[in-house]
Design a protein around this nucleic acid. Sequence first.
DNA 1: TTGACCGGTAGGCAATCGCCTACCTATCAT
DNA 2: ATGATAGGTAGGCGATTGCCTACCGGTCAA
Lengths: 112, 112
Amino acid sequence: MADVDVFAALASPTRRQLLGLLLDQGARPVQELAEHFDMRRPSLSEHLRVLKDAGLVVERRAGRQRLYSLRPEPLRELSEWLTPYERFWREKLSNLRDLLDAEGDQMDGDPR
Amino acid sequence: MADVDVFAALASPTRRQLLGLLLDQGARPVQELAEHFDMRRPSLSEHLRVLKDAGLVVERRAGRQRLYSLRPEPLRELSEWLTPYERFWREKLSNLRDLLDAEGDQMDGDPR
DNA sequence: TTGACCGGTAGGCAATCGCCTACCTATCAT
DNA sequence: ATGATAGGTAGGCGATTGCCTACCGGTCAA
């Protein structure tokens, strides 16, 4: 378990697509996942290992297959990271911020 | 403009910390940002360029300084990507999904 | 038991990353 | 005009990434 950062795990479009497949289709064996990619199976295995190390998927053995399924909990970290940024686009405050910035302000006073 | 993927831009802890600084403190010159990192200034410049290429910061010149400020709009893409996953942890449906998966189902319907 | 199948691991290789030092241009102060 | 300051760019270098082929062990079917 290499304890992979969830942000780093999501940096790859292939890995995001894997999560999307698992979200839409539920647990799936490696072979079936591989059909969706123009890539050899061992490469997919490596992507799946990164996702597993990040806690984003779990593996369950079923005969000679290994079923991977989504484990969305680590995405909570992403959501929480995003929270303080959200109001800036939801409330369209970017322009206000630009104005504030233009005056060379500090924000909540701790000028070093 | 190398048109950088926002997910890739966020993969680096240094770049996330830069965004956090700009969020808390508003526009800042490079030098002041650099004080928060154990890294030479040119490396920071490279990180800032990645953020700029991803549209996450904007640069404004002020004398011989360049003030970088947050541009959170691209984070909306992240938020939208996250949306379909959210209900799985918010409604604690992971266990239900595990049960469904265990039967090797497809999941086209909307199990709610 | 033997062969086919599922999928992980090993190792090679080119490309990219992330840091560095050295250097360059632009601006400001004297 | 000269020197100091802000910060981007060039290029080197080791580490990492992402793909590949080859191989290996475990499971199932005949």
